[in-house]
Design a protein around this nucleic acid. Structure first.
Lengths: 162, 162
DNA sequence: GTCAGTGCAAACTTTTTGCAACTAC
DNA sequence: GTAGTTGCAAAAAGTTTGCACTGAC
């Protein structure tokens, strides 16, 4: 699906959601949705804020961003993650299911796909629980940091870890 | 393994860790470790703080709690989660591997075990990444909230979602 | 015209930091 | 004795809230 088609579709879904729940269709809300669906990967409120101001030339307050994101999460158009201190978000419509590997040293979050993993998780039966979606975070050390550490270990005193 | 044995063991591990990394063995650090290993399930800094003050009668500052928890995470004796606004932690030594199901409505976090799931995740090969541990969070609606919602839908006006 | 939505600043919450006092080594 | 630790209070960072103004309906 082309990106513009996706944008049109999510706009329709959002419109439907707003109508269903008695919310107004404000330009801010559509601008935020549009910007989010232009972003690849994860973003936080701060990044969204500056991206809208700089790239889209559309200024909204942070409060409105927070408010709108809640609506988008309820409309199932955005997913919220909390791997770092600030909440991270990502668009969820028409995205491939993916998992996250997080480097404990540099904090980099990388996505990977694995269909076997995905199907096992999705087919897990849970008792007395209606599951809607899931997040799998695998923590470890990325190749970059691993190389960096090995180099350091070789050269310096092998005492301090910090 | 008995709980007191576990406490002794983690104390040894922590002592070893502190020595290895040139940290001091302070009474605060051991008291914090002991309290954490008395708690079943998850806790946050605030809960740990009041628990130490009330139950253990040992007062430490929040700053020290944060500092010590970082050491314990590095020593692999504590795991950090971030499903709610405040960071949640749990002891990790001698605990069964488990997964989390989180109710998006009431925020309750429940643990469940599933060996098939566990082995698939643990055997997943990751390229260029040394994995250390993982977290699986499944989001949805718990039975309690589900019942509550159905009751409400039946009785009231079926308009508002909030 | 009305009330939901917005921007702004202030408030709030959680976590981090600077500094003086303390203590494990 | 001297660094590493602690407690405290202040600061920082992220998010929420109260209120007056605006604009979607």
């Amino acid at each position: 699906m082309e990106i513009e088609d996706v944008k049109d579709t999510v706009k329709q879904i959002f419109t439907e959601y707003l109508k269903m729940n008695g919310h107004r269709k404000t330009p801010e809300r559509y601008a935020i949705l549009d910007t989010i669906y232009s972003i690849d990967g994860h973003f936080d409120v701060d990044m969204l804020y500056s991206r809208m101001k700089d790239h889209e030339n559309f200024r909204v307050s942070r409060a409105t961003l927070y408010n709108t994101i809640i609506l988008l999460i309820n409309a199932k158009l955005v997913i919220k993650h909390q791997f770092s201190s600030s909440s991270q978000y990502e668009k969820s419509y028409n995205r491939d299911t993916h998992h996250h590997q997080i480097c404990m040293q540099c904090g980099t979050v990388m996505e990977f796909q694995n269909e076997a993993l995905q199907s096992v998780i999705e087919n897990t039966k849970l008792t007395r629980f209606q599951s809607s979606h899931y997040s799998l975070y695998i923590y470890g050390i990325c190749a970059k940091c691993d190389r960096k550490n090995k180099r350091k270990k070789k050269n310096n005193n092998p005492k301090k870890e910090k």
